[in-house]
Design a protein around this nucleic acid. Structure first.
Lengths: 191, 191
DNA sequence: ACCTGAACACCGTTCAAGT
DNA sequence: ACCTGAACACCGTTCAAGT
């Protein structure tokens, strides 16, 4: 384990918890115990739960964006990128049946502080923008509106597959649903 | 408003709350206030929160099943049924940006009492079974495994569209994503 | 700069008591 | 049969105060 300052340790622990229990499931006492301080001390780093939630969600989309850009940068191959895309969401399930932080927070949306909501929206924007870029590269002449619609459809569908599979704690079901998207044509087939 | 006995009133209020705030967002005090009794009185009808949650989730899938069977019974027309299916999930969004109870509870899954988890699974089973029945009617010779895969894919994708649209409080986005499913072939086109 | 004790508000549950 | 006040144990959050 690499060295982490306390703020980073809190962020990492909070993220793991939020991916399993949502924003509502985040609590300072358990978090503090994990990090080895008292719950009140967390407020030194994050004044309120809203600040912590926003910081966690922001770091989450920053990491996701970096992963997506690395994936694109490695190959510049649209088919390979679209083929790999569902595996990014699969990783959360592999990690003790966790889910996409923003997927969970999208459900909790109405109960989130405004700052956290903004980060959740940014996560979605990044996913859709990246998918649209890749889809455009695959079909250079395609209509921009149609591409964005397709990008949103893929993002929503992959997120939905994750939630359903999570509720069965069944990664095979996730793979099956993704395979269904390929068969139906929502995702390109990878032969 | 039709007459409702108290138990039904509690169930209805709990359902509306759970569709907006999840199982975690349910609490006896607010619920009691809505119904016009004290929180302790709810325990007369539902011994524990787990019992209430399970009763709400069960009633939810019972109602959903009845709606699906009515839809199928009216036309026996697979294309019409598949065309209408997304509108059932749209209704929750129309109702003050609520979402499918089971979609929310699928996210909360790890924090649910076992009895509630069982009802959430039943909801999913009913959706997939109904979709498989309709898809089979549309393509009488189709392979049962492929049909079930397709049914799961549709269920997951429509649920995902609902969560994404909810996080933007934007029904037009829901319609757009569903349209994207039709264009890509996941859902049949309705011309 | 970093941490904490203590108070506060809230929640699910119980139970004896009311009508 | 149905309802309630009051109490209990517990938990997340806050903030003034410590070093």
């Amino acid at each position: 384990m690499m060295t982490m300052d306390r703020r980073e340790a809190i962020l990492a622990a909070a993220r793991a918890t939020a991916q399993a229990h949502g924003y509502g499931g985040l609590n300072f006492r358990d978090l503090a115990a994990e990090v080895g301080i008292k719950s009140a001390s967390i407020h030194y780093y994050f004044p309120s739960k809203a600040d912590l939630g926003a910081a966690v969600a922001r770091r989450y989309w920053e990491d996701s964006e970096a992963r997506l850009e690395r994936l694109w940068g490695e190959s510049q191959d649209p088919a390979a990128c679209l083929g790999q895309y569902p595996s990014l969401f699969r990783k959360a399930l592999e990690n003790e049946n966790r889910m996409c932080l923003s997927g969970f927070m999208a459900a909790e949306y109405d109960d989130l502080p405004e700052q956290v909501q903004a980060e959740v929206r940014t996560f979605g924007d990044i996913q859709v923008t990246w998918l649209a870029k890749v889809l455009s590269a695959a079909e250079p002449g395609a209509d921009a509106v149609a591409v964005k619609q397709r990008a949103r459809a893929i993002f929503a569908a992959v997120g939905g597959a994750q939630v359903i599979a999570r509720s069965r704690a069944d990664i095979a079901m996730y793979d099956d649903i993704i395979a269904g998207y390929r068969v139906s044509g929502l995702l390109p087939r990878n032969d």
